[in-house]
Amino acid sequence: MVEVISALAGHARTGRHGVERKGAGVIFRDVPGRDLVQVAWWPDTGPAVRAVLAKQLDVAMSDTPRRVSESGQTTVFPVAPDKLWIAAPMAVGLHAKLSIALPVAQGVVTELGHSRTVIRISGPSTREVLARSFAIDLHPSVFPPGSFASSSMHHIGAMLHYVRDLGGAPVFDVYLLRTFALSLFEGLCENADGFGYTVEG
């Protein structure tokens, strides 16, 4: 199978950058191989669609706004009252699977996996770097692990997901529109310059 080429391929310089200090403030990693689909439904079919999805994905669907539901490597983002996004490994074949499971009378499925570039940001200075791009209160009391927000970075739509804590430092995924991804990634790097950062290959 032909390889998916990232929007950052050939441009993101791997290695250590920014100010010299003990340990990088943040680590950037391009997250490949993730699929993303949007499921949208009609005003009277929401519960039915959610039931189908819960069964198909084996996910207990969260009712909490701005919180994801997860099962294994599948993550469900309730992005709008009548829409949610589902991220999973490409091998799951989300689009085909859900298109069969959901008749158009209940809802529709749109493939978005190639439309987003997912950049994982981790390290002790993650929140400081993100605060330079996102107008979102990332304090753990307000935005705990499992939170996500549809927001904007440099006036371009972007989604931010607080994945978990790892080794005492937060791990975030930033979903960027593919065509803006390189430009916005360069902006993230510039914002990380003062903290020192590593771009992992």
Binding site: H114, H155, R178, L182
Partner: peptide
């Protein structure tokens, strides 16, 4: 702030750019 030069406004590249 940092919104200068190439970051004055974001650059949009097609999937064929490289």
């Amino acid at each position: 702030g940092h919104e200068t030069d190439m970051h004055l406004r974001p650059v949009r590249r097609t999937p064929f750019h490289r």
